[in-house]
């Protein structure tokens, strides 16, 4: 039961629905009556100025096909900075893409995955995997810039060897339905996983960030900070699950989701879940949903800052906390520019 299977078989009965517990806020069967035809192969896509400006090696996938054969494999102790662009280029068509990354022992990678909608009304599915050998380090930034009327679901499976570290920041602008899933199998053993995210949603956009981290070994660390803003009739969804398996003692897991609602017709749904089968653990999660702090707005205004500017300043600061955690500087700048651009559309 998945979007990929439904696309392959052109059978909407294979789509997950609201009645499936994990899809209660992102049902697809209710939305897709007929699975659209397969997306055509395209020879080229438009450029992306901000990504091009990085000057990093770039892989482009258009409608699920690579434009030229290439893959990312960072050898042991190697270093790399890559961009992958997953472009949905055609209107009203469906495609599924699969891609892998592997990083050798002690290797380092900064990876930017950009999901872009050039077309309209498309249905896109992606299954990605990232494998990290011992002591490898990956920092991944994901930009979700789907078309407003698109349906887009991507899943990444992350597999970590001892001593590795995986940091991810997902920046989502939403779509008609947008879901980004990250599944991490966490070996413990000093591995540090950070799964952050931010979303800025306007109009009728929907965005769902779903994460599952399964701690299988001792002394693993996971931290998560997801922050979002929804206005108009937009809908933000966060589902986070941290599983600590039997024997995964010494696990330290912290999950936080905070969201601002800027309109009475917008909606935030959250399910921060802990599933713990070991006793020597320290796990916590926090979740808040609300409006901007009235007292802070008044404080800023009492210093002469007009209301709209005060709100914009506070909203930027609110989401900026996520961006600040990005270590790689060019990646952080890119993320900040993305956020600023998206926030401008809020006003």
């Amino acid at each position: 039961m998945s979007l990929a299977a439904a696309i392959a078989a052109r059978d909407p009965d294979l789509l997950p629905s609201r009645r499936d517990e994990d899809w209660r806020w992102t049902g697809l069967r209710e939305l897709i009556r007929v699975v659209p035809p397969a997306s055509p192969k395209v020879a080229s896509v438009a450029g992306h100025a901000a990504l091009a400006a990085l000057g990093w090696p770039t892989l482009v996938f258009a409608n699920g096909h690579t434009l030229e054969e290439a893959s990312i494999a960072i050898p042991a102790t190697g270093k790399g900075a890559f961009v992958r662009r997953f472009v949905s280029a055609s209107d009203g068509a469906a495609h599924h893409v699969e891609a892998d990354v592997s990083v050798g022992e002690g290797g380092r990678l900064v990876l930017i995955d950009s999901f872009e909608g050039e077309g309209a009304g498309y249905v896109a599915s992606a299954a990605l995997s990232i494998r990290l050998a011992a002591n490898a380090r990956v920092e991944r930034i994901v930009l979700l810039d789907d078309a407003e009327d698109a349906i887009s679901v991507a899943r990444t499976d992350v597999d970590l060897a001892p001593g590795a570290s995986f940091h991810q920041t997902v920046l989502a602008a939403g779509a008609k339905r947008q879901r980004f899933e990250t599944h991490v199998s966490h070996p413990g053993a000093g591995v540090n996983v950070r799964l952050d995210g931010a979303y800025v949603l306007t109009g009728k956009r929907h965005s769902d960030q779903t994460t599952v981290v399964a701690h299988a070994g001792e002394n693993g660390i996971t931290t998560q900070l997801i922050k979002g803003v929804a206005t108009d009739q937009a809908r933000g969804v966060f589902q986070g699950r941290i599983v600590v398996q039997r024997g995964a003692d010494g696990t330290d897991a912290r999950m936080a989701h905070h969201a601002l609602l800027l309109s009475d017709r917008a909606e935030i749904d959250a399910k921060p879940e802990l599933e713990i089968y070991a006793d020597d653990v320290s796990c916590a999660h926090g979740n808040t949903v609300g409006a901007l702090d009235e007292a802070a707005i008044f404080y800023a205004r009492s210093r002469g800052i007009p209301e709209a500017a005060a709100k914009a300043m506070l909203t930027t600061a609110y989401l900026g906390e996520v961006i600040e955690r990005i270590v790689d500087e060019p990646a952080r700048e890119l993320a900040l520019a993305w956020l600023t651009g998206r926030l401008e559309r809020l006003a």
Partner: peptide, 21 residues
């Protein structure tokens, strides 16, 4: 009871206020 505003450095805050006024 002055407020805390995380994410907005005091310098940025004061400058924004000064210019707005």
């Amino acid at each position: 009871y002055p407020l805390e505003i995380p994410g907005v450095p005091a310098l940025t805050f004061i400058r924004t206020a000064m210019n707005a006024q």
